[in-house]
Design a protein around this nucleic acid. Structure first.
Lengths: 342, 342
DNA sequence: CGGCGGATTGGTAGCGCTACCATTTGATCA
DNA sequence: TGATCAAATGGTAGCGCTACCAATCCGCCG
């Protein structure tokens, strides 16, 4: 059982079973045991069997820190998201994680969106782990962070946006296109007086600008904008709707930067007895899972978050295994989902 | 700039800046540089300054894999959750992560809830990283997984439940208590015919059993139960409500195992013109963030997920830093939130 | 029969950091 | 003055694994 041979163990180390122990038990050299576990085709069937037996008997679990240090491959991928609660990004993180796990990679999760110093600290912490790849939600503007990432040489996937100058790889879609298409869609439905309810977010900015551009081109009045800051809650949607109604009573379409805000706008509209979409149209963004089944079902812009995760995972895995990625930018597109509120 | 001295670099290694490079630049020994960064009180101010300058100039980021290997402290904490999308657990993960980050720890995220083999593989992958702690949503039943975790000696926090036999530490609340309190609450409001709409989930089981117990004790008829399996969506809530109405038309209270299911039940009730709570009461579970602001606002059971995350983080950090945790089990309780649907 | 090549196994030397112990220095005290 | 001690610095030897380079064995060829 617990063999307590007279070889004195060092006070250092964790005391756990090591590859050395397994090799000794199997009667082979450590390096052979390593090969049995990592490149089984390179060892004879008998040795393979003996090593597997030894692993079973000892309950050996390889120390990936040591392996990573020796091979300069951590098999870790870091993902940075602004928030995890009620976030459209989680669908992406879920599929990213699933895909990575199947390929033998582990996910590290970092939350950005606090202060700038914390952002910096997060990046440092991430790089310190020497991940084989980094997934970013959003695109990284020029600055210390970008420089650092570039210098680290770690493969990076930016996402949820499109830019002509990605750091490395990119899986996203065009927010300007969305703004334009939504505008055209609503104008096509006969809407004329627009309001935007939105959070402070540069991607929402891009959609808003493109939206306003089209509205202007059609000679329709200015777009009334309510910015709720960083409070993307249902109740701030309600409050925003009150503002909209007070300032632009003749509004007939409200475009929101998130489904939750749209739900708030809808709630307020209903509580005032405004008919939707008779009196006003309401559009969300993101298509959170339960939206389709509500009554009324919110019209929204659907992003295939799972697809973004999968593509990003494949990019990152390819690069981690040393394969070149030819087409480094993928546009996964979007779709306008017309339901009951437009 | 890029000093290319005639010392031939080994082909191994990542080629990144190491502590050795920093030390050389600062004119001190590597170990002194290490101390300047990790235990700054142990070096003189001048050395500290020189080392910091060297770090600045080189953009050095310590390799945490190497540090972890040498010190047997990875500064990694693993969190295992069943799902990340629209999940009540994410509030917990968010606060856990925030708290850990401030203490210098990184979060690894693993998703369970797939197959049993994957569960096993996940645990193995997690242990392979030698995290300083593991956070589990739910409690781990006896079995291979539990044995393995116990054998690894890694501090573990189980959560979202209470058991007299935790692996190690526990931050949770009693599902049986919830079942009982909800039953008493509804009976106190004059409700007599109960239905349960629930997912397959042992914690929901425990609530259901305790709920039925109280109902029986009051001499009220059997509780009609609809099990939606693993599909915790709004639409399965609607379908479940149809079943309930067909089988137990005189139902006057429906208790759901998640807010989303309750939203579905509510949707169906409204679309059939049933008055809520006049004709039927509806209760959810979890209190997802936007519920309070909807019209009608769903009554539910609130769990303080953020508090669970914070407590778990503190437990894990304490243990990682070698402090003993006296009280290893914490009951964070719950509260019944009465809003418009009861 | 010597030699060649593939398959299998082993030894050595790190990966980049820190635990542990030793040394140096300068201040303090009997 | 020498002994004593704390503060500051350095040297060495790993942590547990894998890259790289032998060494060995066996079958097969000319």
């Amino acid at each position: 059982m617990n063999e307590n041979n007279n070889v004195k163990r060092s006070r250092r180390g964790s005391g756990a079973i090591t590859l050395r122990d397994v090799a000794k038990l199997a009667g082979v050299a450590p390096i052979t045991a390593s090969r049995a576990l990592n490149t089984p085709t390179q060892v004879s069937p008998e040795v393979l069997q003996k090593v597997h037996d030894a692993v079973q008997r000892t309950g050996y679990v390889p120390n990936r820190m040591a392996g990573g240090l020796a091979s300069s491959r951590s098999r870790l991928i870091a993902a940075v998201v602004p928030s995890t609660v009620m976030s459209v990004f989680m669908e992406t993180v879920e599929s990213l994680n699933a895909e990575l796990f199947d390929a033998g990679y582990q996910l590290m999760l970092g939350q950005s969106g606090y202060s700038v110093e914390r952002e910096e600290a997060l990046l440092e912490a991430v790089i310190g782990r020497r991940p084989d790849g980094i997934f970013l939600t959003g695109i990284l503007q020029a600055g210390r962070g970008r420089t650092r990432l570039l210098a680290s040489g770690i493969p990076v996937v930016e996402s949820w946006d499109l830019t002509p100058t990605p750091i490395d790889m990119l899986v996203g879609f065009s927010h300007a296109d969305i703004g334009r298409e939504v505008a055209n869609f609503l104008i096509g439905k006969g809407r004329r007086k627009f309001a935007l309810v939105r959070a402070s977010d540069e991607r929402a900015d891009r959609r808003a600008v493109a939206f306003a551009e089209i509205v202007t081109k059609h000679g329709l009045g200015a777009v009334f904008e309510v910015n709720v800051g960083s409070s993307r809650t249902l109740v701030s949607g309600r409050e925003a709707m009150q503002r909209v109604l007070a300032e632009l009573p003749e509004v007939d379409a409200i475009v929101c930067s998130s489904d939750l805000l749209a739900l708030g706008v809808l709630t307020e509209a209903k509580s005032r007895g405004l008919s939707v979409p008779g009196r006003v149209s309401i559009m969300g963004f993101g298509d959170v899972p339960f939206l389709a089944d509500m009554v009324p079902a919110l019209s929204t812009v659907r992003i295939n978050g799972a697809e973004i995760g999968r593509r990003a995972a494949r990019f990152l895995i390819d690069r981690a295994e040393g394969r070149e990625v030819e087409q480094r930018v993928v546009d996964v597109g979007f779709s306008i989902v017309e339901r009951d509120t437009t």
